[in-house]
Design a protein around this nucleic acid. Structure first.
Length: 113
DNA sequence: AACGTGACAAGGC
DNA sequence: AGCCTTGCCACGT
């Protein structure tokens, strides 16, 4: 039986909050989960998601705005399909974080006040 | 117990 | 724009 680190749960909890049509980076998720600087852990936690979870893992991408799987892999295509379905646009395989980044928009809203 | 490997990121060049 | 470190943490050998 596999032991589940406590940090996984907070990471999963955080990812669950990313709204539809938005994305967050591994680093941003880590920071929100109070695990600043531990982006790798986020990837690891998502890799270990239970099968049936409804957590939107596909809304997490890397800091370059790209999907962190190799382009030919099945999971890469699956993730891209999920994102496109939420009207997220890819330009030369990249996502515009200014436009679709969850946190970026939060910051903008705060600035606007 | 050391070492290599990941769905990472930031900084240097 | 890429490629190469370095820091990071959990796991499997």
């Amino acid at each position: 039986m596999k032991t589940i680190p406590h940090s996984y749960k907070t990471i999963w909890q955080t990812v669950k909050q990313i709204p539809k049509g938005k994305v967050a980076t591994y680093g941003q998720v880590a920071e929100l989960a109070d695990l600043k600087g531990q982006a790798r852990l986020v990837g690891y936690a998502l890799h270990n998601l239970p099968e049936k979870s409804k957590i939107p893992w596909y809304r997490v991408i890397n800091s370059k705005g790209k999907i962190s799987f190799t382009n030919s892999s099945k999971t890469f295509k699956l993730q891209r399909r999920f994102l496109v379905k939420e009207c997220i646009v890819f330009l030369s395989n990249k996502i515009d974080l200014e436009k679709y980044g969850w946190l970026n928009n939060i910051q903008k809203q705060w600035k606007a006040i």
